Amino acid sequence: MTMADVSGNFAELTLRLTRLGLTAPDLGSAMQPVLDALLSGAGAQVAGYYQWWAQDQVYRVRAESGTRPSTLPLRGLAPGLPLVQALHGSAEPLFIPDVRAHPAARSFAWPGLHAMIAAPVHDREGTLIGALLLLGFTPQPWPAGAPALVRSVTGLIALLAARLDAEERERAAHEHALRALGLCLEARSAETHGHTDRVTRLATQLGQALHLSDADLCALRWGAYLHDIGKLSLPDEILHCPGPLTDEMRGRMRRHVDEGVNLARQLPFLPGEALNVVAAHHERWDGTGYPRGVGGEAIPLTARIFAVCDVFDALTSSRSYKAAWRADEALSFIQAASGTHFDPRVVRALTGVLGRAQA
């Protein structure tokens, strides 16, 4: 590839990255095209972007391109690494032709790794929020044009990463707030302690088994936190009724779904798929559920997933009116209701998830 070819590719890449900066839904999908292009333009064999992950206190890989040998166990960067410390105080990328000879890169002297480009990504306050790493497995120096190419996109990467990092922080704040609301609802409804977290965790595992996108998994979690928000409007004599509900009380109970949807709609950041969980988790596969009486695949998949998890957790939890069932008893009940109450595909996936958990 000539330098003219490389310059043309990066002019196109700059335009593409600018568009991604305005439209990309997440950091990983935004970074992937730039990493792919950097591999060919800079002569690297592996390119990776590492973003600060406060929960784990590590710079975690968010996107990667190329083939990483098994001798390179690089999945995250600890903040105490000399390379990370060097990037903290650097406004420019580090171009390292020999990792064994550079004081900041000696800890990366793994078999086969010779050269490295490490570019810092800072936010507006100068905090290191990410690092772009290009790795080379040949002993020759980086190509002459590599520094200019990396510098040409690092600024755009920084802007993109800062924007998406801020959005991810906002989503995390929303998630924490919704979980707190779910825990309040759990306490008010006299649910077994831990119900919200258990059912959300199981729904997430089931959603992953069914290959939901990251956006749908997020919506599934948020809908799980809010699934019973409509019960805020129920009087205590219905919510805490010790015996069977009368027909009138049962009708009032069922209205909590529509009331929940109306309340959840007041949260402007809540995605429609999360509202679907609130609106349809009491629908049944055979169309005999409520509040709409829809059935089959007309019920949103996120709601079908959550419905199975909600019933499983209710059965395996002790309540004032019943003892907790064993997990195998609850699963047998759900399997028996496959095709009537529950989506058969979701039941099969739940069986697999629970089987792996017990293995």
Rank of each mutant, 00 (worst) to 15 (best):
F10C: 01
R16I: 01
T23W: 00
S29E: 07
L35G: 01
L35K: 02
D36W: 00
D36S: 05
L39V: 06
Q51W: 00
R60V: 01
S70N: 08
G76Q: 10
L77F: 12
G80C: 05
L81Y: 13
P82V: 09
V99Y: 14
H102A: 06
R106D: 08
W110G: 00
G112M: 09
H114V: 10
H114L: 03
A119P: 07
T127E: 09
T127K: 09
T127G: 00
L133A: 01
W142N: 10
P143R: 06
A144S: 13
A146C: 10
L149K: 05
V150P: 10
V153S: 06
G155T: 15
I157H: 04
R163P: 09
L164A: 04
E168H: 12
E170W: 07
L185G: 00
R188T: 01
T192Q: 06
H193T: 11
S213C: 02
E237M: 08
I238M: 07
R252E: 15
G260C: 10
D286A: 14
D286L: 07
R292L: 14
G293Q: 13
A298R: 15
T302L: 10
A307V: 03
D313A: 08
A314K: 10
R319N: 04
S320Q: 12
S320K: 10
A323M: 10
S332R: 15
S332Y: 03
I334T: 08
Q335R: 15
L354H: 03
G355D: 15
Q358M: 08
